[in-house]
Nucleic acid binder design. Structure first.
Lengths: 97, 97
DNA sequence: GCGAGGTATTGCGTATACACAATAATTGAG
DNA sequence: CTCAATTATTGTGTATACGCAATACCTCGC
C-alpha cells in the first residue's frame, strides 16, 4: 500500500490535473487515478513528478500514511527544522488529504 | 529510461541478491533483472529498497545516468557534506509543505 | 576432481500500470 | 440561466513488472 501527496502539491502549485499530466507525460486520468486510489506508479513517473514539484521522491510517496497537515503546521511561517518532511508518529486513522 | 545504484549499494553492504530480495520481499531474479537492465520498478519497491539501504530514493534511482564513482570520490575518508546523498538532476531547494 | 553459493539467462503466467474514449457531475464566470 | 473547465467514473486494451522454474556458468573451498 502506497500513499502520496500528489493532490496536495498539485493544488498548492495551482496546477490542474491536465497540466500536471502534460508536464510528466502521462494521461490526465492517470493523475486522477493516482490521486484518489493509492496505487504504486513506476519510479520513473515518481521521479518525474518529484522533479516537477522539486521535492524528493520520499516526500511525495511513502509506505506509511502521511500525517494530516494540521498536525504538522505549527505556525503560518514556520522555521523549518531539518527533519520535518519525513516520518510520522501519528495515528493511522487520520485522513491525509 | 531509468538508472539505479542498486548493485553498488548492495555490494557495498555485503548483501547477496537473495538476501536483498528477501529483505524487500521480491524474487532474487527481480533484483538481478533490476541490476542489469535498466527498468523501472514500482515506487513501492523503490521505497523498500531505499529503506533497506537507508538512503533517499533519489540517490538510488535517477532519470539521468549516475556519474562514475571515480568522479565523485575526492578522498578516501571524505567529510560528508549535508547534501551528498541528494542527486544531480534536482536542485536541493526541496520545499516540503 | 567434486560440490556449493552467487549469478546469468530463458521462458511462461499473472497482475497491474497506463493509454484512450466516453460520459456525467461539479463549479465558476458571463 | 448558459458555457467552459475541471474532475469523477467506467470500460477496454496493451505493455510490463514481477513470480516462479529450470538450466548453465564461474569461483571458491574441500
Amino acid at each position: 500500500m502506497i500513499h502520496n501527496r500528489i493532490a496536495l502539491y498539485r493544488v498548492e502549485r495551482g496546477l490542474s490535473r491536465k497540466e500536471l499530466a502534460v508536464a510528466v507525460g502521462v494521461n490526465p486520468q492517470t493523475i486522477g487515478f493516482l490521486e484518489r486510489g493509492s496505487y504504486s506508479p513506476s519510479v520513473e513517473l515518481a521521479l518525474k513528478l518529484a522533479a516537477v514539484f522539486r521535492v524528493p521522491v520520499d516526500s511525495l510517496f511513502s509506505l506509511t500514511p502521511f500525517p494530516a497537515l494540521a498536525t504538522q503546521i505549527t505556525s503560518d511561517h514556520p522555521q523549518r527544522s531539518e527533519s520535518d518532511h519525513d516520518e510520522l508518529t501519528l495515528p493511522a486513522n487520520a485522513r491525509p488529504v
